[in-house]
Amino acid sequence: MSDYVKYGSMKEGDNFLDPAPAFDVTEDVVDKYMASTNDNTPALKELNSDGKRIAPPMLAAVYVIDALRTRVGPPGGIHAKQQFKFHRPAVIGETLFTSAVVLKMYERKGRNYVEMTTETKNQQGELITSGMITRIWGKES
């Protein structure tokens, strides 16, 4: 039995992540992300008005993909399109929960595509990021 999600096992309207996985925004996660992307944005070195350090908006790429990775497709899949709306930056100490719904599935040029909407909220249910991701599903052996 394969240890990845098969394309044929999904259908439009499915909650892809149920329950929504948790992701802790830690100093270590933010520091490693900033170092790996060469991000030296001055605002990310300061504390916000609540005295908390904020994370780069594009950390969404980490916590959304981390959530989606709890149900992975076959190796070799790639990103085709990405939409994000950053309602506000996550802050260190928050726990984020990302849900995803399969919006559309289609085939183009012999490749299988999956579009999903995602929504990330913190532990209080406050919306942090919403988005849509289009992935080309990896080839199944």
Binding site: D39, P56, P57, M58, F86, R88
Partner: peptide, 26 residues
């Protein structure tokens, strides 16, 4: 996309981090 975010952060931090939207194709 992290590089794109660096550009937008440098150009307009508040507008980008608080309500910014991105829509791209690879």
């Amino acid at each position: 996309l992290a590089f794109v975010s660096r550009v937008l952060s440098q150009w307009n931090w508040n507008g980008w981090a608080y309500g910014g939207e991105l829509n791209v194709a690879f």
